[in-house]
Simulated assay, not measured.
Amino acid sequence: MLSDKSAQTVRATLPVVGAAIGEITGSFYGRLFEAHPELLRDLFNRGNQADGSQRQALAGSIAAFATALVEHPDRRPDAMLARIAHKHASLGVTPDQYQVVHTHLFAAIVEVLGDAVTPEVAAAWDEVYWLMANALIAVEARLYEESGTRGERRPYAVAARTAETADVATFLLRPADGGPVPAHQPGQYVSVQVELPDGARQIRQYSLSGQPDGGLRITVKKVAGDPAGEVSNHLHQHVDEGATLLVSAPFGDVRLADGDRPVLLASAGIGCTPIVGMLTHLAETGATRRVIAVHGDRQESAHAFRAEYAQLVDKLPNGEAHVWYERPEGEWPAARTGLVDLAALGVPADTVAYLCGPLPFMRAVRTQLLAAGVPAADIHYEVFGPDLWLGQD
């Protein structure tokens, strides 16, 4: 943990650094990509850079880590570190890249804060950085060892492609070399790398949406807007049965835990992908625990896995499904029209909950679960893209 001297300095300067952290991370990424354009081309998500969400997530993680060090010096924020480490391992981040980040991050700090960065201040924040970096390096080394990889991706053949909705497609992937599929747990994801027309080899992470024998299943929503999703649109437009994709080993810290306690699986929109994977596992293992499956969507035609979702819940002796549509296309109960509302479901206080969907949805469901007496430690969430929840909840 932080030395006493550095803790005092960080505590005193945290308001100043925190107020400028957005400007600092903006300068950092500019410097980093000028010196190493290959990182933007082949590692970082260019869409998240364009809309600023990656800068916001980095700023939030640094501020949250530093705050935790000074407010709770006796413990490390391992949950936050594990989430970041799994993302990094999926991308293939290497220890030497932390030194590259350090060089450009501290240059950005000096650029933004100027004379306020005295040798004492620089030393204290250097200690913060390396405490975080070395902790991540250690966790990532363990994840690489467990996966039997160093973050490299393996060729997988697209064995089948299925349209779930107008803008959602499922890809069944099998190892191109005919070898075994790596072990994985319900809730985890893989990273997929594709080569785009400009030569960039962009990487995106997709939840595993099922457990087919001898393969992996991912489900991809085509991301519209400005910027549009580069990889999702490429997959929809150019990848069909017979194509080959480079796929990482499975990673992810949000994993369905076995047990007898009631479990609530709550999703909205394309957030159903890891939840369907969890339901598949529960159905295949003959789970008898109470399973409360909750989903919210725009309308029936936008609901990916609508039929499979119902079929999986029907296989569970103590399973129940509750679906809300904001704008139903046919006859639909008024009590299930609009946004997800857990009030009438009787969620037990000893429930373990898993959430996936847009941040406003997850915040609303989490608030309802806390009101029902579910401890915060038993509410787990998966975020698609940069984790903007850090430091905001």
Rank of each mutant, 00 (worst) to 15 (best):
H295A: 01
D378L: 13
A334R: 15
A376T: 00
L345I: 14
T337C: 05
E300D: 10
N318T: 06
G338N: 06
A349K: 08
A335E: 04
V352E: 13
V352S: 08
S301R: 14
H380G: 09
D341H: 03
Y381W: 07
G357F: 10
G338C: 08
R306L: 09
V365R: 07
L312F: 04
T367W: 02
A376Y: 01
A310W: 04
Y309I: 11
I379W: 04
V383E: 05
N318D: 06
R363E: 05
Y354V: 10
Y354G: 12
A343D: 14
H295W: 05
Q311H: 15
R306G: 02
G319T: 08
Y354L: 12
R327I: 04
A344R: 13
E308W: 05
E382S: 13
L355W: 04
A343N: 10
P348D: 11
Y325H: 00
F384D: 13
T351C: 12
V313Y: 03
G319C: 15
R366N: 03
A344M: 10
P328A: 03
L339D: 01
L355D: 04
R306D: 14
Y325W: 03
P333Y: 14
F384M: 08
D297E: 14
I379A: 05
R298N: 01
D350C: 02
D314V: 03
K315C: 07
D314L: 06
W324T: 09
G357Y: 11
H322N: 14
P348M: 03
P358E: 00
A376F: 01
E382K: 13
R363K: 07
V374D: 00
E331F: 03
D350S: 07
E320F: 04
A372H: 05
D314A: 15
G373K: 05
A321H: 04
E329D: 11
L355N: 07
A344C: 09
A321M: 03
P360C: 00
P360L: 08
L316P: 06
T337A: 02
E329R: 00
Y309G: 11
P348H: 08
S301N: 11
F305S: 02
T337K: 04
G357W: 09
A344V: 12
V374Y: 01
A310G: 07
A304I: 02
Q311P: 10
T367S: 15
Q311E: 15
R306I: 03
P358G: 03
P328L: 02
M362Y: 01
P333C: 13
L312K: 01
D314I: 07
Y381T: 06
D378R: 15
L342K: 05
E331V: 07
L345H: 12
R306V: 06
L355Q: 01
L312Y: 02
A334W: 05
P328W: 04
I379S: 05
A304G: 14
W332G: 10
T367Q: 10
A364Q: 00
N318F: 05
F361E: 02
P317K: 14
E331G: 14
N318Q: 13
L342T: 09
D314G: 10
R336K: 11
A304C: 12
A344K: 12
A372I: 09
L312H: 01
T367D: 03
L359T: 15
H303M: 10
C356N: 15
V340G: 00
L370N: 08
E300Y: 09
N318E: 09
H295K: 01
A344P: 02
N318H: 11
A377P: 04
L369I: 07
A310P: 04
A376P: 02
A364T: 13
G330A: 13
